[in-house]
């Protein structure tokens, strides 16, 4: 297992390889189980790898350690990306991915409560993860434990009123151990997220709600690693990272094509995707 404190160069190469591996795993899982949301999975894999390999203070052997740092995938429809990330990070055997979403299996299309080690919360209905993360961050303060809580939201999820209820609470209580990462892939289920609702200016909205914001390329592992490591910002504010991403990232014929919100790849498309990712 990769040591998060390893040499940055080695770490960077490891993370890049891991991103490709997880992208390939997710494409295969979607094909085999006929599960949708592939495009939404591919956009957040750099974020998850940067968090799990370079930021989170975690021990996969102790997934319930009270002092651990937590990550909630609030955009639960990207569950395949989370499962593949956790398996490759050593939370559970890789073989669990082979039976994903089969009848009776532990891993469903949206993560259930305690379905696998490392899954912090059941998500799927949007707008729940931030509130749960706030509770965890506040619990750290009440119990005098220092840990950070990371919550990955989708841009579409910023439609939910509960997201902004949470944003105001976190700012009011100065929860600087809370970090939101918006996987801003510019699409929601049926349209451009800027056309469906007035999302812009997104970073300025969070700032106006009392957060400290950073905007970056959500596919740059180096930028993500730096931004995650620089949290908290020391301003007494919660941090939001607006990660500019591409839906379907990593597979040329899926990139920025919203059909892949629901489309299932054929075996030929899996082969081509794996070829592009340099996997065999």
């Amino acid at each position: 297992m990769v040591n998060p404190q390893a040499d940055p160069g080695v770490e960077h190469e490891t993370m890049k390889r891991m991103v490709r591996t997880i992208r390939g795993a997710v494409v295969k899982m979607s094909h085999r189980s006929r599960s949708p949301h592939l495009g939404s999975c591919l956009s957040c894999i750099d974020i998850l790898v940067a968090a799990y390999w370079s930021a989170l203070r975690i021990d996969p052997a102790k997934p319930a350690d009270p002092g651990r740092e937590r990550l909630i995938l609030s955009k639960g429809h990207a569950a395949m990306a989370l499962y593949a990330t956790l398996a490759h990070r050593g939370f559970f055997p890789l073989s669990w991915l082979d039976t994903y979403a089969e009848d009776g299996d532990r891993l469903a299309e949206h993560p259930g409560p305690g379905c696998a080690p490392g899954v912090e919360a059941a998500t799927g209905s949007l707008g729940h993860g931030l509130g749960i993360g706030i509770g965890m961050a506040l619990a750290g303060r009440i119990q005098e434990r220092w840990y950070r809580v990371f919550v990955v939201l989708s841009d579409g999820e910023c439609n939910e009123g509960s997201t902004w209820e949470g944003a105001m609470f976190a700012a009011a209580h100065g929860l600087e151990n809370l970090v939101v990462i918006v996987d801003d892939n510019k699409w929601q289920a049926t349209g451009r997220s800027r056309e469906v609702l007035a999302l812009d200016p997104l970073a300025a909205k969070w700032e106006a709600f009392g957060w400290s914001s950073v905007e970056l390329d959500g596919h740059s592992l180096a930028d993500l690693r730096e931004a995650l490591r620089q949290t908290p910002h020391g301003t007494g504010k919660p941090v939001v990272i607006i990660a500019n991403t591409v839906k379907g990232k990593g597979v040329s014929f899926m990139e920025d094509d919203n059909n892949w919100h629901y489309r299932i790849p054929t075996s030929e498309e899996v082969r081509r995707a794996h070829e592009e990712l340099g996997l065999r």
Binding site: P66, A121, I132, G133, I134, G135, M136, A137, A139, I142
Partner: peptide, 9 residues
């Protein structure tokens, strides 16, 4: 939701 997060902790 916040109550859930507290209880999980």
């Amino acid at each position: 939701s916040l109550a859930a997060g507290l209880a999980m902790s």
